[in-house]
């Protein structure tokens, strides 16, 4: 059994994970990232279930989390197969590639102002030259050509 402040804090962590997963699944457009966010929501629920289970001294919550793990494995297997099939048909992992299936009254998603290139390009480390470049053997390249 567990104290009430610990239950409070654990439920807070579960709520934060669930909310983050909800925001991700609402905004992100990559199908695989959307499934990752669904798994994040499942993690938040699992933390809450285990906290309640320990607080009440009941095994039901932990048993339910075991079944959540099982169903998440099944769901990930089937869903990733569907994602692969969707990618094979459209060549994109974009959820908006399937917007022809939307309701007739909803507007079409248009990427009007796509960035031309990533503004947050990675900055690779550069090595400053130390010392003078050795002259090198002029015969070396010829020798290598013949080997």
């Amino acid at each position: 059994m567990m104290s009430l402040p610990m239950l409070h804090n654990a439920l807070l962590v579960g709520a934060m994970l669930f909310s983050l997963g909800l925001v991700g699944i609402l905004t992100r457009r990559n199908l695989i990232v959307m499934f990752l966010c669904a798994e994040l929501m499942l993690q938040g629920v699992s933390v809450s279930l285990v906290a309640w289970s320990r607080y009440h001294g009941d095994w039901g919550g932990q048993v339910l989390v075991i079944f959540v793990l099982t169903v998440a494995a099944c769901e990930a297997a089937v869903a990733l197969v569907f994602v692969l099939q969707a990618f094979a048909r459209t060549g994109r992992l974009d959820a908006a590639a399937w917007q022809t299936l939307r309701e007739a009254t909803l507007p079409r998603v248009m990427d009007s102002k796509l960035p031309a290139d990533d503004t947050l390009a990675p900055s690779w480390p550069t090595l400053s030259p130390a010392g003078v470049l050795p002259p090198g053997d002029p015969q070396e390249s010829l020798q290598r050509e013949h080997v």
């Binding site: 457009r29 959820a95 908006a96 998603v109 990427d111 796509l114 960035p115």
Partner: peptide, 9 residues
Amino acid sequence: APYDRVSSE
């Protein structure tokens, strides 16, 4: 991909 650099709403 470009759809990784934008998000909906």
